[in-house]
Design a protein around this nucleic acid. Structure first.
Length: 549
DNA sequence: CTGGGGTCCT
DNA sequence: AGGACCC
């Protein structure tokens, strides 16, 4: 949790409780941060309904193996739970339609487009992904810059709900900041609906934790703002310390051992109370989280650090079966690496062995082994989703040798999971305009190519009764994959003053924030004292985008 | 009958 | 390489 200069640290109310205030630069203006958390409603189910609109009116759920991981709101309106076992749900609700969601390919694509749409909005200073369907957006700079409008002309109407709105004071600058945030959250949600046909919930607050927590107050398809003075009221609605993001099962168990059962216990704890189980930094962070204090910055999410696939199955007991499964996994993974465009330098195999788990008395035990992979083996993926025969069998052999390090084939074993992942991508020389330009060109190139076959239609080999895929009732319809290029985004809400005068607003709006920042840094602004020199390549690319006059 | 992903830290 | 956390 390192602070950089873009992290304006805690809100006013947070600062008062922070031990080392000097380490956290105060907000320049004395105003709080404004953080939006966007959470797609039953994301997987919504994606399936976009792909197959007839499902919209049906009670539907998405299943992976024996679990229904989410149901749509039509189902929930009938009292069907949002998740559960296939067994239980189909028995109790025979009308529930289940779609197989074990292949995350489409969800990944929608997730990427959501991130792009959000990042393209000019007021989004930083966007951080959390899983496939959540994003944090820091809109602090925009909000502070637009707060100066006189209150009597600009009543800054709040969009959506206010958590316990009684103390709303429209003349309080802190409240007005958050109200502006709620307007921006509404615009983000509207764009996601217009561009992708997906509804979402949002929370607006002074830090990530509170934004996420308050966003849960009005779902689906609505949003909630938290005023700093209502922080404790919100926290009091939480049933357990476990409800705080960042306090997971292990931390919760440790807290229980210390006799800390409730959130109030943790709020009242001293660092010394926690010293037995946690180091001082962690203890301080936990107590602060329990009080709604969270200085962690919204970190701009870049390209993934790793790409991996796993498959669970009933059991594998031979090297030969493993080879077949690894081949199948690699085929799908190769497609993803190809679409990513970068060549990884490390490959890893993951496995679960039931016998080992029982021997060690553990509920689950995942092992992995990784190794560097010579560059020449994978370079074919730069231009083709399939590797030449020779390289492909080399990769599979590498995977098998990694597996051999985990299982002894002369002793009994029972694998129930295999996975392959890749990581350690070459650095992309940070986020420069050159880089963006190259990446954009590559994307266009990739999207023009049709996948040789829809890998969503690929079926795992050697299916056991237990893991038979559901009949693919949604064969085909893939709204995104048929597009050569994503539809150009409409001109987003943004202040004209944000845009350099010689730029096309639409082009500007579609540039990622860091690129805009870089270009703004190169703008001839009188007040700027530290003008970065513009190198040649940047200049020519900038002129490519700029309007001709 | 707990999925198939990810992140960062130790 | 594993473990914590997140969805």
């Amino acid at each position: 949790m390192s602070d950089d200069e873009t992290d304006w640290g805690a809100s006013l109310s947070e600062l008062s409780a922070v031990g080392h205030a000097p380490l956290i630069p105060p907000p320049p203006s004395g105003l709080p941060r404004v953080i939006i958390h966007i959470d797609l409603d039953c994301f997987y189910a919504q994606v399936e309904m976009v792909r197959q609109p007839a499902l919209r009116s049906q009670p539907m759920g998405v299943r992976q193996k024996q679990m229904v991981i989410t149901t749509n709101y039509t189902a929930r309106a009938r009292g069907i739970p949002k998740s559960g076992s296939v067994q239980a749900l189909t028995q109790a609700y025979p009308e529930l339609i289940l779609v197989n969601g074990e292949d995350l390919y489409e969800y990944r694509r929608f997730s990427q487009r959501i991130f792009e749409v959000v990042s393209s909005m000019t007021f989004a200073h930083a966007v951080e992904r959390l899983g496939m369907d959540e994003n944090f957006i820091d809109v602090t700079p925009w909000v502070h810059a637009h707060l100066s409008a006189p209150a009597e002309i600009d009543p800054s109407p709040v969009q959506g709900h206010v958590f316990q709105a009684a103390s709303w004071d429209k003349s309080d600058p802190v409240h007005r900041c958050l109200a502006l945030g709620s307007v921006l959250a509404q615009r983000i949600r509207t764009r996601i609906r217009e561009e992708l046909g997906l509804t979402s919930a949002a929370g607006i607050a002074v830090n990530k934790t509170l934004a996420k927590l308050v966003g849960g107050c009005h779902k689906p398809d609505d949003q909630t703002l938290l005023l700093p003075d209502q922080t404790l009221a919100l926290l009091q609605t939480l049933p357990s310390p476990r409800s705080i993001p960042g306090i997971g099962s292990a931390t919760h168990a440790s807290l229980l051992e210390l006799g800390i059962d409730t959130l109030a216990d943790l709020q009242a704890a001293q660092v010394s109370n926690l010293a037995e189980m946690f180091d001082r930094e962690t203890a301080e962070r936990l107590i602060q989280l329990s009080q709604g204090i969270d200085p962690s910055p919204v970190k701009t999410s870049g390209r993934p650090q790793s790409i991996g696939l796993e498959d669970r199955f009933k059991v594998i007991t031979t090297r030969d079966e493993s080879k077949t499964k690894l081949k199948w996994l690699w085929g799908r993974l190769a497609q993803l690496i190809y679409e990513d465009g970068r060549i990884p330098r490390v490959i890893r195999v993951t496995a679960r062995d039931q016998i080992k788990e029982r021997a060690q008395g553990r509920r689950w035990l995942k092992e992995s082994r990784q190794t560097q992979i010579a560059g020449h083996i994978l370079t074919g993926l730069k231009t083709n989703p399939d590797l030449p025969q020779r390289e492909e069998s080399q990769v599979v052999d590498i995977c098998l040798s990694l597996l051999d390090k985990m299982v002894n084939h002369s002793a009994p074993y029972q694998l129930t999971l295999l996975g392959i992942g890749v990581s350690d991508f070459p650095p992309e020389t940070a986020n420069t305009i050159q880089n963006y330009f190259v990446a954009g060109a590559k994307e266009t190139r990739n999207e023009k190519r049709q996948p040789k076959r829809s890998h969503a239609a690929m079926t795992p080999p050697n299916e056991e009764a237990m893991c038979q895929p559901t009949p693919d009732i949604d064969e085909a319809i893939r709204p995104c994959s048929k597009k050569v290029k994503p539809a150009p985004l409409a001109i987003p809400v943004c202040d004209v003053s944000d845009i350099p005068h010689d730029w096309d607003p639409e082009v500007w709006a579609n540039l990622p924030m860091d690129i805009r920042t870089e270009l703004l840094a190169s703008q001839p602004i009188q007040s700027r004292t530290n003008v970065k020199p513009l190198n040649k390549k940047t200049k020519s690319i900038a002129s490519y985008f700029q309007k001709k006059s």
